[in-house]
Simulated scan of single mutants.
Amino acid sequence: MFDATCEVLEKSIEEGNFSTRGDASAAYDAITSFEFVFVLHLMRNILEVSHDLCQALQQKNQDILNALTLVSTTKTLIQRMRESSWEAFIKEVILFCEKHEVEVPDMNALHIPRRGRTRKIVDQISVEHHYCVNLFLAVIDTQLQELNGRFNDNMVELLTLSSTLDPRDNYKFFSINKVCELVERFYPGDFSDQEKFHIRMQAQHYELDVPNHAELTNLCTISELCQGLTKTGKSLTYPLIDRLIRLILTLPVSTATTERSFSAMNIVKNRLRNKMEDELLANCLLIYIEKKIAEKFDTDSIIDEFYDMKNRCVPLR
């Protein structure tokens, strides 16, 4: 891909018009620089490590426990990259440059900023120090800071306690003490004092009943458990546990759903529909976002619903 891109740019420099030759020449000089190759390899390595986590967070039905595990492993791998991969990384970059005839700077030479002069340099650092500290470590530290900021200790603890309601492996993660701790620490305003006292006994009944229910076995996610409790009527039998499960399902592990909603709004309310009112927009967005559910609706039942609302002047069938 790198060679093909360079070849296209070289051809544009030779055969293009004046404007095209200038842009192509600038692009060619940029991508055949050591710094570009260095940053390209660094981006690739970081994206490889974080790819699985990004894919998990983009899923519409998120598995909290798996997402938490991927957060932990991603942090570990990025930290491992920071501590012990510099030598192998710079060697890989240099080999790539030598293979594709990209000039490699002297790593022991004095680093001179691109837009500065030697007399303006405050810190006398080598080229290797610049690439290692100012680029390699700085980018990795930014990634770690982002993960630690998004998944801080409170969030990790909340997700860990929430995993006690995970129904996998016949509810082996379920713990009455963790359920009570989850309510006390993170949802004190959603339960009254009497409900906080009663949820322990309700959890004991839940522990003996739900794992042995035929329709509630072999579930994989908390969202499936919530649907199963509603379907079997257990949500009425254990309303406090059901409320806690619904609160957990609102945890914003990622902004993927929100981003999808904004993308859908740009599709639904386009240039030709720019005067659409809020109520109609909300209804259209609901159908578009939940299209899998909407596809199950029968057209005849929708027409019957319209007929029941009021008399129609024009037949809909």
Rank of each mutant, 00 (worst) to 15 (best):
A4M: 14
T5E: 04
V8K: 13
V8R: 05
E10M: 08
A26I: 15
A26H: 14
Y28C: 00
D29M: 04
R44H: 14
R44E: 10
A56L: 09
A67I: 12
V71N: 03
Q79T: 15
Q79R: 13
M81A: 02
M81C: 02
S84K: 09
A88M: 10
A88G: 14
F89S: 03
E92D: 15
L95Q: 13
C97W: 02
R114M: 08
R115D: 05
T118K: 14
E128Y: 07
Y131F: 15
N134M: 08
L135N: 09
V139M: 13
D141W: 08
L144E: 12
Q145P: 05
R150D: 06
T160G: 14
N170W: 07
S175E: 05
I176C: 08
N177P: 00
K178L: 03
Q194K: 14
R200L: 05
C220E: 06
T221K: 08
S223C: 05
S223P: 02
E224M: 01
G228W: 07
S235T: 13
I241Q: 02
I245Q: 03
R246S: 12
P252W: 03
V253E: 01
V253Q: 07
S263D: 01
A264W: 01
A264I: 12
N266K: 15
N266Q: 11
R271I: 11
L281H: 08
A282K: 13
N283C: 12
C284A: 15
I289A: 07
K291L: 07
I293Y: 15
D298L: 13
D300Y: 11
I303L: 12
D304I: 06
E305I: 09
E305V: 09
D308C: 15
N311C: 11
V314F: 08
V314K: 06
V314Q: 09
P315C: 04
R317S: 05
